[in-house]
C-alpha cells in the first residue's frame, strides 16, 4: 500500500494498520538508536518510545517531508535526549556520592563505569564527536539512508551534511590513531 494512503487510513481510525509502519521502519529506527547508544537493549527501549511518539504525533505529520526522514528525526532526538538524561543522572549521582557515600549507589556507579570501560574504542570516539557530526556520521553508516535523506532529517543542505561527515571521519581517525600510537 502507498505510504501516504496508509497513514491516511490510520488517521481515519484503522489504528491496527500502524503495525505496518512499525514493520517497515523498525530495523532502521533500532539501528539508528543503537548507533548513538551502543547497547542493543537500550536501543530497543528507545525505539519503542520513538514509535509511540510517532503514533501520538502522527496527525501532525504533514506529508511534506517523507515519513522515513520524519521518523529518523524522532529517533535521533530521542537517542540524544536519552544520552543527555543518563549523563545528567550520572553527574548527579557522583556529586551526591561526594556528600554521602551509600554502598548501593556506589556499586551502581561502579557498574556503569565498568560498562563504559567495556565499550569499544570506536564507540567512545563516536561519543566524543560534536552532536551534529555524530548524527551525520551515524546516519551515514546505513546504506539504506541516502545523503539526501540525512539532509532532510537534519534540516541541512546535502553539502553541509557532506562536510559534517567529512569532519566526523577526520576527527574519528585522529582520535583512533592517537590511541593506537599510545598503546
Amino acid at each position: 500500500m502507498d505510504e501516504s494512503k496508509l497513514i491516511k487510513r490510520i488517521l481515519e481510525g484503522e489504528k491496527e494498520l500502524f503495525s505496518e509502519l512499525v514493520i517497515s521502519y523498525q530495523k532502521e529506527v533500532i539501528n539508528i538508536c543503537n548507533g548513538f547508544l551502543h547497547d542493543i537493549d537500550s536501543a530497543k527501549d528507545v525505539a519503542q518510545e520513538v514509535f509511540i511518539e510517532a503514533w501520538k504525533s502522527l496527525s501532525k505529520f504533514r506529508g511534506d517531508s517523507k515519513f522515513s526522514t520524519w521518523i529518523y528525526r524522532i529517533s535521533v532526538n530521542k537517542s540524544l535526549n536519552y544520552l543527555r538524561e543518563i549523563k545528567k543522572k550520572l553527574t548527579e549521582d557522583i556529586s551526591d556520592n561526594e556528600l554521602k557515600i551509600s554502598d548501593d549507589e556506589n556499586s551502581a556507579i561502579e557498574k556503569e563505569f565498568e560498562m563504559s570501560q567495556k565499550m569499544e574504542l570506536i564507540h567512545k570516539s563516536i561519543d566524543n564527536l560534536a552532536e551534529n557530526q555524530r548524527t551525520a556520521f551515524v546516519l551515514s553508516k546505513f546504506e539504506e539512508i541516502s545523503y539526501k535523506e540525512i539532509a532532510e532529517t537534519m534540516n541541512l543542505t546535502i553539502s553541509s551534511v557532506e562536510s559534517l561527515i567529512h569532519r566526523a571521519k577526520t576527527n574519528l581517525q585522529k582520535e583512533l590513531s592517537g590511541y593506537y600510537k599510545k598503546n
Partner: peptide, 30 residues
Amino acid sequence: QKLKIDLSILSSERIMEIDVNFTESVMQNI
C-alpha cells in the same frame, strides 16, 4: 588494519531481522 577492524564493529552490531515481538510490543503500548 586496526582502523579497519574498529570500523567494522559498527556494521557488525547492526540488526538485520524484523522482530515480531517488537512490533507487537509497540502495538500493545498504543
